[in-house]
Amino acid sequence: MCTMIAVSAAVTGSGKGPTGWFPVTRATVGYDHGTHSGTEHALLLDFTNYDLGVDARVALELDLGSGRALMAQLQSAIEAAEAIEVPGDDAAIEVPGDDAGAREGSSGSSGGAVGEQGSR
């Protein structure tokens, strides 16, 4: 089945693709047919910058258990980071090659808040 589950968020950071590092502007999380995983569906994580082309993409296909484990460890790492960082420093990531530089609440080429689009 095509679930059509996909949600996106604007992000600020860098990803490493086949041609090297590039600034990523959007993260999309889906649960639908994968390309490489051997299951009918997979969690599909895409970190992209479509201003640079459709292949400016770092992709992951995970099973749901791995997604939960990743989410838990992301949460754990963020909480640990927040304990040692000054509030507001989360937006101060320098992104080489990104003209926007450090951005807070970055908006990607057409990104937005989590859950802004296409949920089913």
């Binding site: 999309t28 599909l44 895409d46 992209t48 992709a59």
Partner: peptide, 19 residues
Amino acid sequence: RYGHGTPDDVTAKVRSEGG
């Protein structure tokens, strides 16, 4: 109309834009 690349890259873009 979404651009060109490998099929999975193009599909990822379509997915990110709601299909």
